[in-house]
Nucleic acid binder design. Structure first.
Lengths: 229, 229
DNA sequence: CGTTCGCTTGAACTAATTCAAGATAAGTGG
DNA sequence: CCACTTATCTTGAATTAGTTCAAGCGAACG
């Protein structure tokens, strides 16, 4: 079942069985209870992970202690390739938001894999490049767009990532506090709360404690893209 | 002299002579007059460049037409590896700000190089990873820090990158309009102007038309790091 | 049943933007 | 060399988006 997991993640997708097998066999399974950390910002970068089960949060802490969330991830998602390859230390935290499991390769195992299968180095380059372009886009958003629009985008992104249908819309399938949305969009919990209240009055979303339900995705998209209506 | 240039840039640094030679010989030299574009956002990504001479600006245009600057670069700087490897299109503009020259590898040449010399794929991974971590830090800055601080950082970064000593300080060695600084820090030309005026009154910088001179780097660092004094 | 945690809302405040007007400096052509 | 034109920059005043702080609500949880 390890190879099945790998097959489902972009990094290992469509690779020959022998590569998958050798990758799967050189990984260790690590269990991390909800709230605990896979790794913390500043620690020596020791492992490359593929999240196998659960959910996790990638975040950075500013020198002043303010936190910002770089991403919320679910399985199967690759994390730490950059650190494990290039960097001496992890540049951010990876915290399990529920009980989670990850396949972990230490640096030696990763290096051995990359050397034995050069295609994995190219794949890694693809993956990191793709993430770079995404991050660049989010940087531009942050530099040029208003909070409401950034929040709309963030919610749509999360809904696309993990949502479950309900009677009156789709609910984002992870616990999502106002504070999380604030740290995800670079604003405050108060502004998020006000914005969600306004959207709720307009019938675009319904929301409650750590929960957001999308009722009218089209109108939220209109806000995200700054369309009329 | 091509190999000398390559030797000076991180991507090719400390490689065996045969690799340098093969890289140098498969590149084409391209001249781009000041103001013209090496490539534009949205175009098919055809080449990987190493800027050989001149200066250039990496920028994105928002759908609304607002521009943001992702970086100002001088020789020798590698650009386009992400696009040429991974992407179908360039995700941003590369505009020469003065008459410039670049070594250019088309996709076939690049692929051949990477296949012949696997170390180049690993190097590329390193390079992109490093840029990713940098961008992540700038993202955090943008999300959490005030304009004055971001501006201080941007100016210090530019001064470190390219500056020339003068009677009363170091001058940033590229033409740098208020508008450029605004697009680099995610603010407006007016706010930049006011901030620079205040700093000038305080004796921290001197500035004029498209020019900034650092008089008291220590105090600017204090602003950038939010230290007392 | 009370405490805690997350959420809402109001009111005051502030950083930054927007717009307008004018100053300064750099080319340009006579 | 000078007037003319253009681009860059400065500054003030009005405005606004968003923050901060304080108070209170309501659902979850022991």
């Amino acid at each position: 079942m390890r190879t099945d997991l790998l097959r489902r993640c972009g990094y290992f997708h469509n690779l020959p069985a022998d590569i998958l097998a050798s990758a799967a066999s050189s990984a260790q399974l690590r269990h991390v209870p909800g709230g605990e950390f896979f790794f913390r910002q500043g620690e020596p970068a020791s492992h490359f992970y593929v999240l196998a089960a659960g959910n996790a949060r990638l975040s950075q802490i500013t020198p002043e202690g303010r936190q910002i969330i770089m991403g919320l991830i679910g399985p199967p998602h690759e994390i730490g390739i950059i650190a494990a390859i290039a960097g001496a230390i992890y540049p951010l935290d990876l915290q399990a938001t529920q009980d989670s499991q990850g396949l972990a390769w230490d640096r030696d195992a990763l290096r051995a894999l990359l050397e034995a299968h050069p295609v994995l180095a190219l794949r890694a380059l693809h993956m990191v490049s793709g993430r770079f372009v995404e991050l660049q886009d989010r940087y531009r958003e942050l530099a040029t767009e208003r909070v409401e629009r950034r929040l709309a985008r963030a919610i749509l992104r999360l809904a696309a990532q993990a949502s479950r249908p309900e009677a009156d819309g789709v609910t984002i399938a992870v616990r999502l506090a106002r504070q999380d949305l604030a740290e995800l969009t670079g604003t405050t919990l108060f502004t998020v709360s006000r914005t969600l209240s306004a959207w709720e009055d307009a019938g675009i979303v319904r929301s409650g404690r750590e929960r957001v339900t999308l009722c009218d995705p089209a109108r939220l998209t209109a806000i995200a893209e700054d369309l009329p209506g």
